[in-house]
């Protein structure tokens, strides 16, 4: 197991998982989200190739209703 920070919270996941695997485990549609890994945008086309490392900080975001402010 490795430790990662996912959307600000610590999580334990299996070693050797790709970003694509993680999204599947989280039941998230890769088409509807974007991922930032250690402050770098991860291109959608590389989700299968990116292996998540111990200590990675991931942000997974999507679009929500929003106009102005919060």
């Amino acid at each position: 197991m490795i430790n990662i920070t996912l959307n600000g919270d610590s999580h334990k996941i299996q070693k050797g998982q790709s970003l694509f695997d993680l999204l599947q485990d989280l039941k998230l549609d890769p088409g509807k989200v974007a991922v930032e890994r250690n402050l770098e945008i991860v291109p959608k086309s590389t989700y299968q190739d990116i292996e998540i490392d111990d200590g990675d900080r991931l942000e997974i975001v999507h679009f929500i209703g929003g106009g102005k402010t919060i």
């Binding site: 997974i60 999507h62 929500i64 209703g65």
Partner: peptide
């Protein structure tokens, strides 16, 4: 206009905006 926010990873089955406003029909 839409906002960008963290996905709720604890409850991924929450409805999403894109399911109600088709991004193919509306320019986000």
């Amino acid at each position: 206009t839409v906002a960008v926010r963290r996905v709720n990873v604890m409850d991924p089955n929450q409805p999403m905006l894109v399911d109600y406003l088709d991004p193919k029909k509306y320019t986000y």
